[in-house]
């Protein structure tokens, strides 16, 4: 407990886009409850803070840390370890921290190729071909930047994680509900779930929240949603050949995308107990292809031109595959 008697709250972003922070701020006036119940000890995106202030805290001084972003470099890992030490409850917050998310797709490429894409492709204006150097001699001395890891890791591949909160980003109403829960726990009105639990989400799949009608599935072709002139607004998208990831994706979002006529792309990650989201989805899709003719099956599968993007968009780093071999064997 701190001098003002309120428990400490921290939020940190590692390799992420910042959407998770926006989602937290998007909870509206509920943010005042956070302020009323917590002392914000460390939240770089919202207020000034120094790592050394955190280092100076006693271990376990922070009650709750929401950690978003994957572990892409040495700095991410170092802060993850630091916050783990200082926090009583460490939450992997959002898809990047839970399962790698979009930054994790870089695990398909060699680290050198990642840098080449960033610094030396047509979309980058870099006339002097500047490349970051790990060490650089300045008049004042040598400065360092954090080492870039060969692959992106999820938070729990680096430190012990207490809870997982999925979503890209987590829905604001789910964040509000989790904050409510923690406040209730503080006041002795509720119990924390078992360690390792997924919070702020449901326990089945998006289909459970999706109002579209469902039949036995027999798929003759996969189509990309932009190529379909008109979709039946009431029928399961997968049955219409749109590769909807809803059947494999944890619920919690309220099936927003399918209700808006777009397929679920899987941002809430695997359902409870599923170890490899992509593998589950691949076997599921393969099971309902309605053909025994190898050539026709090939044609049907051509309807999914980017399998890694379809099946592993959010979870590659957290999957059993984790990375392509050239990626994790690569060094910079």
């Amino acid at each position: 407990m701190t001098t003002n008697g309120k428990p400490k709250f921290a939020m940190y972003w590692a390799a992420s886009c910042g959407g998770c922070e926006i989602a937290v701020l998007n909870i509206g006036e509920k943010i005042l409850d956070v302020d009323a119940n917590f002392e914000v000890a460390f939240w770089p995106v919202a207020m000034d803070a120094k790592y050394k202030d955190v280092e100076a805290m006693e271990d376990g001084a922070i009650l709750l840390t929401l950690f978003n972003g994957g572990i892409r470099n040495e700095e991410n890992a170092e802060i993850a370890r630091l916050l783990r030490r200082k926090s009583q409850i460490l939450v992997a917050f959002g898809s990047c921290a839970c399962e790698g998310c979009i930054p994790g797709l870089a695990n398909l490429s060699k680290p050198q190729d990642v840098l080449d894409t960033v610094y030396s492709t047509v979309s980058t204006d870099n006339p002097n071909a500047v490349r970051p150097q790990y060490h650089y001699q300045m008049p004042e001395g040598v400065i360092h930047i954090p080492t870039f890891y060969p692959v992106l890791k999820t938070l729990d591949q680096v430190v012990d994680v207490d809870y997982y909160m999925p979503g890209c980003p987590p829905e604001s109403h789910q964040i509000a509900a989790v904050i409510d829960l923690v406040i209730k726990v503080l006041h002795g009105e509720a119990q924390l779930p078992a360690k390792g639990a997924t919070i702020g989400a449901g326990n089945s799949t998006v289909c459970d929240d999706c109002p579209r009608a469902r039949n036995v599935k027999l798929i003759k072709k996969f189509v990309r949603i932009q190529d379909v002139p008109e979709l039946d607004p009431h029928l399961c998208l997968l049955e219409q050949g749109v590769p909807c990831n809803g059947p494999a994706t944890r619920n919690g979002c309220g099936a927003l995308c399918p209700q808006a006529g777009a397929q679920c792309i899987g941002c809430y990650g695997p359902a409870e107990g599923v170890i490899d989201y992509g593998a589950r989805l691949i076997t599921a899709f393969a099971s309902v292809i309605d053909s025994n003719d190898p050539a026709e099956i090939e044609r049907i599968l051509d309807g999914i031109p980017d399998p890694a993007g379809q099946f592993y968009r959010f979870n590659l780093a957290g999957s059993l595959l984790r990375a392509a071999k050239p990626a994790w064997q690569g060094k910079l």
Binding site: S204, V206, N215, P247
Partner: peptide, 8 residues
């Protein structure tokens, strides 16, 4: 509890 009736 986990089955959402996707019918796959």
């Amino acid at each position: 509890a986990k089955c959402s009736g996707c019918r796959i």
